[in-house]
Design a protein around this nucleic acid. Structure first.
Length: 476
RNA sequence: GGCGCUAUCGUCUAGGGGACUAGGACGGGGCCCUCUCAAGGCCCAAACACGGGUUCGAAUCCCGUUAGCGCUACCA
């Protein structure tokens, strides 16, 4: 048996949607699992809506996710003459016919069917045209499309995720395969290209199930065996409706901007509608490839849960060394207008466990680079209010003790010892002196242990900020 | 309306006739750890849509009902 050839075939009419990204991921995983070939084909036959900008964004999105391809990108637009030839061949073989019905006529038929409460099905009026009538129309330059003759019989296939799916040909109508401008309609273009590119497995969204019987009929009419079809379920928004702009971020680029790591996104997307069986959640790429099967794909649509994505991102964030996080954090800082004045890695190490996104990491890094950037949050304010005068006196106590710790001793151990002894000597609990320091440096009651925070911020910045903060509180 | 697909905790899922008192994860609640938070550990609440079959036995197989979703273009 030859190795599988799969393709991801997005149309460049919008950004890379998470649903599309997952379809791409499944194709890629299947190719890598089986040692097959992953082909990328851009379906740009809708000239009205396709743009180069969209193509670029889609390619960038795939690359960001770590999905590569072995062939392509091919552009469907380049194969227009083959599509046309296929349509004309079907016409010549009597498997298709010219249709001179205008859009208005068709709309009227459709409206009539709807009013009568019946399913619209093209009434084949042009199938009955004599060759003289056809010649006459052609001579008068009347625009025409080519329609495919759908047989009445059953069309069934063994879907790799759904099992047997069957349609009755009589429920389908004679659909157009070639427009009056001689460009191919989607169903023909896809089949023509998939045949030409020797695609063996078509892995695509569930929403294509109703196209599949038409495409199978085309394969047969063109004299080819259909490939294996695997229809993967849709991705839904939190309200159970098809994921759309209404639900917030739907483009892969949005998640990149929000500070999601590609590995986390890939892991999350893989588990949305696919399961390796058992209880695995965090799956490294090689494991994913090793375990991936079409049988493991879920039949049911899945709701996109941002909270779980962020949890997973947090898992990757904590597990990754600061080195690996350096680049994305720097990029994020640049966007925030913050310049890194020193090695960021110790700071990243200090904050990453408490973060769920790169954005969150960058914000905390910025504050540790210069505590003057911190903003008082509601919890910080509440603590100041609650402690009253004690806040400042404890802060001053801590500042005085920290002042005694020289630059050479300014590390987490010495700082902890220093803070402990000042607390003890005043009969205070450690938290009584640490919390004011934390709020002064970060504006919040949440951070890494205060001694580590002081160490990472550095002596100079820390002491200056403590002094500033105490003064500011008095003035307010 | 027609055709098709689907149906296990709020969400992602495990489950392929007895191992089910239905397991894990996110989210929620509680406890431990602790200077705070996160991480981590422990614990709690939370589901087989409904009705019929088949079978000694059904979350698992079959049929219906209901609900949701998709398609129903000279879009892809």
């Amino acid at each position: 048996m030859s190795t599988p050839r799969v393709r991801f075939a997005p149309s460049p009419t919008g950004y890379l949607h998470v649903g599309g990204a997952r379809t791409a991921l499944f194709n890629w995983l299947y190719a890598r699992h089986t040692g097959g070939t992953h082909v990328l084909r851009i379906e740009d036959t809708d000239r009205e809506r396709s743009t180069e900008e969209h193509t670029r964004v889609i390619l960038d999105g795939l690359t960001w996710l770590g999905i590569d391809w072995d062939e392509g990108p091919y552009f469907q637009g380049a194969y227009a003459s083959r599509h046309q030839a296929d349509a004309e061949r079907l016409l010549a073989e009597g498997k298709a016919y010219r249709c001179f019905c205008t859009r208005e006529e068709l709309d009227a038929q459709r409206a009539k069917a709807e009013a009568a409460g019946v399913a619209f099905r093209y009434d084949r009026r042009c199938l009955g045209l004599t060759s003289q009538q056809i010649d006459e129309q052609l001579r008068s330059k009347a625009p025409s499309t080519i329609r495919f003759i759908m047989g009445d019989g059953e069309i069934a296939w063994d879907d790799a995720v759904h099992g047997t799916i069957s349609f009755q040909g009589r429920d389908l109508d004679d659909f157009v395969i070639l427009r009056s401008d001689k460009s191919a309609i989607y169903n023909l273009a896809v089949v023509s290209d998939d045949i030409a590119m020797n695609i063996t497995h078509v892995i695509r969204g569930d929403d294509h199930i109703s196209n599949t019987p038409k495409q199978i009929a085309l394969y047969r009419a063109l004299g080819h065996e259909p490939p294996v079809f695997a229809h993967v379920p849709m991705i839904l928004g939190s309200d159970g409706k098809k994921l759309s702009k209404r639900h917030g971020a739907t483009a892969v680029g949005d998640y990149q901007d929000q500070g999601i790591l590609p590995a986390a996104m890939r892991n999350f997307l893989a588990l949305l509608g696919w399961s390796p069986g058992g209880d695995r959640e965090i799956l490294p790429q090689d494991e994913m490839i090793r375990l991936f099967t079409l049988e493991g794909i879920q039949k049911k649509a899945a709701v996109f849960d941002t909270a779980k994505l962020e949890w997973m991102n947090g898992q990757y964030l904590s597990a990754l060394p600061a080195d690996a996080l350096l680049q994305p954090v720097e990029r994020q800082l640049a966007q925030m207008g913050v310049t890194a004045t020193r090695d960021l890695r110790p700071i990243i190490d200090s904050v990453k466990a408490r973060s769920r996104t790169i954005l969150h990491v960058a914000e905390q890094v910025a504050v540790r680079l210069d505590p003057a950037r911190s903003k008082l949050d509601p919890k910080g304010e509440a603590l100041i209010r609650k402690m009253g005068a004690a806040f400042n006196s404890h802060l001053n106590l801590a500042a005085a003790a920290l002042e005694l710790i020289g630059p050479a001793e300014w590390d987490a151990d010495h700082l902890l010892a220093g803070l402990k002894s000042v607390a003890e000597s005043q009969g205070l609990k450690l938290g009584d002196v640490m919390q004011p320091v934390r709020v002064a440096l970060t504006g919040s009651t949440v951070s890494e242990p205060v001694n580590e925070l002081l160490a990472v911020v550095g002596r100079e910045h820390s002491l200056r900020r403590l002094e500033q903060f105490a003064r500011r509180r008095v003035e307010v």
